[in-house]
Design a protein around this nucleic acid. Structure first.
Lengths: 121, 121
DNA sequence: TACAACTATAGAGTATAGTCTATACATTAA
DNA sequence: TTAATGTATAGACTATACTCTATAGTTGTA
């Protein structure tokens, strides 16, 4: 598909998609047979990749971190053991973030309870 | 306490503390009786405020969002009902972030299982 | 064929959150 | 008392992640 379709199907603007492509997060390829233009074709599988990037960003990972993971995981020559190690490490990082969020939640809940009990902060 | 102590007790650099003070997140006051300098005194309670800022940042809130919350909550003239509404809204936002993180975790766990089962991606 | 809409590249501009430097003055320990 | 350390202000600089503009060429439709 062309960039316009990729943009519409992911909800990511064309500008941002090109920004990601420059960073190496995604890659389109120009059709060798078509000589009249340099339009890039983007693979169907990029939809999933981009959704994964969006989710990872929401999870607090930087594009640099996501990029390293993508390069290693999909394009790198990693052994099974190395892939397992990366997955475990990332899961631990996510767990830590969840833990931190739960602490913030506890703080908010306490504040709410204090208000309810008339103990205005 | 002076800024150096506040920095040491929170782990936040003096530069960043001043940056926060410029944004209005924290506030020190110069001792009126001491005329020889303009050194600011920071209240003990700021330790908790700063820890709360750090936690909120980790939770993915921007300094602008945190600032609004602090201004409203601690300095604003909010009714009990308004405070309750704010607390509920923030708790919902945190819950959403936790949900998103759990999705990323599921993705990572699946990837890990795929590797373990020899289904290298 | 005219022209609106799409694609590509390069580079400028913006927002957020620091981080660092320069300058000036104050405090404290040797 | 002087040198090191601490404090204040202002402003420059950096990194991240976009976001927009300019320019040029391409495609599709009336």
């Amino acid at each position: 598909m062309l960039i316009n379709e990729l943009s519409k199907r992911t909800g990511v603007t064309i500008h941002t998609l090109r920004f990601y492509e420059n960073l190496g997060l995604i890659k389109g390829k120009t059709d060798e047979e078509v000589k009249s233009n340099k339009y890039k074709q983007y693979d169907e599988s990029l939809i999933e990749t981009i959704n994964w990037i969006i989710a990872s960003k929401k999870a607090g990972f930087t594009l640099a971190e996501i990029n390293i993971l993508i390069q290693d995981w999909f394009n790198g020559n990693l052994t099974l053991i190395e892939k397992l190690a990366i997955a475990k490490k990332k899961i631990n990082e996510v767990d830590l973030k969840i833990k931190e969020l739960k602490e913030v939640r506890r703080f908010l809940l306490q504040a709410k309870k204090d208000v309810e009990n008339g103990l205005c902060l």
